[in-house]
């Protein structure tokens, strides 16, 4: 832009072009030359503004990328071991499948008095033990926070919300509203997930095949001075009658036909929460849906704060 201005200005002042221009414009008033010049001089303004806007955008984009990269490397560091273990366990489980599947098949096809039966059983049992070791690794890598490891709540919530929306029938609208500043739950993530999944599947069951919506919210909040997470799952399903309301948390209480529900879902949810000092309550009117509210104690980790403000939860909620 500057160069352009110089290109116009230098020859004009050097070569006395102003004089010439003045003469010409006087001679041809009808050409409106003054206006044209003013217009030309104004042209750089929007161009400058546009360039500046683009630069700002590019700068923001770079910042976003840097932030993402920072988050990623943080996540990698935290996840490295667990991811490796989980990936490996998955692979080895596949590799063990022929050993376990086929040895067992041959065991049942082999006559009792065949001396090779014992050898086959040894192969099968060794593979079974290997499966057991892998299960332990998987369990530990999944339940890291039981062992005091950190959990990326924002990412985990985003993953969970993805899964829930994936499993929502097309007639049901799923509305997740997830805060991006949640504390880390003082509860194994698997267990918290199990709580939410149970409430979610109950909500879907209450809607039945009909049209409806399920709202899932997760916000930070305190309960008698203790930090924690407030979760709620509300649905537009059939609702719960007052006499049922007092019984739904009982083990084996179910309104579902035999073979469809165990009636253990809500009981498990309540037990899991009781174990960690959490709470659950329910609000419902027959015919106008139900709302389950959960509180789980949690902690804010100091170094987490920059990190929980990531964009992931916002995107998931949007």
């Amino acid at each position: 832009m500057l160069v352009l201005l110089l290109l116009v200005w230098v020859p004009m002042s050097e070569l006395d072009l102003y004089e010439w221009f003045y003469e010409v414009s006087r001679a041809h008033e009808d050409w409106d030359l003054d206006e044209t010049v003013i217009l030309l001089l104004l042209l750089p303004l929007p161009l400058t503004w546009y360039t500046w806007r683009r630069m700002r955008e590019a700068q923001k984009q770079t910042e976003r990328l840097l932030e993402l990269e920072r988050q990623l490397s943080h996540a990698r560091k935290m996840d490295g071991l667990g991811t490796l273990a989980a990936g490996m366990a998955h692979q080895v489980n596949n590799q063990l499948q022929p050993v376990i599947g086929l040895s067992e098949l041959i065991v049942v096809q082999t006559a009792e008095e065949d001396p090779r039966l014992r050898q086959l059983e040894m192969i099968r049992d060794a593979a079974m033990r290997a499966r057991g070791s892998l299960d332990t690794v998987l369990r530990i890598s999944r339940r890291r926070n039981e062992f005091g490891g950190e959990v990326d709540v924002t990412q985990n919530m985003a993953d969970l919300v993805d899964m829930l929306s994936l499993s929502c029938p097309s007639d049901v609208t799923f509305l997740p509203i997830i805060s991006d500043a949640l504390p880390e739950p003082k509860m194994a993530w698997d267990d918290l997930e199990s709580v939410i999944m149970n409430l979610f599947s109950n909500a879907l069951a209450a809607i039945g095949g009909a049209q409806g919506s399920v709202t899932f919210t997760a916000t930070p909040g305190q309960m008698s001075g203790v930090d924690g997470l407030f979760l709620s799952l509300s649905d537009t399903g059939v609702g719960i009658t007052p006499d049922m309301l007092s019984r739904i948390f009982e083990p084996y209480f179910t309104s579902k036909p035999v073979g469809e529900g165990t009636g253990l879902g809500l009981w498990q949810v309540q037990e899991l929460l009781r174990n960690v000092g959490g709470q659950i309550s329910v609000d419902s009117q027959p015919g106008s849906g139900a709302q389950f509210k959960v509180w789980v104690p949690g902690i804010f980790r100091a170094e987490d704060n920059h990190w929980t403000k990531g964009s992931v939860a916002r995107e998931a909620a949007g």
Partner: peptide, 18 residues
């Protein structure tokens, strides 16, 4: 399934839910 995908979600649970 042979185990968890490398995310927090247990895919077998999801399959059941689905």
């Amino acid at each position: 399934s042979g185990g968890a995908r490398t995310s927090a979600v247990n895919y077998l649970e999801v399959a059941k839910l689905l």
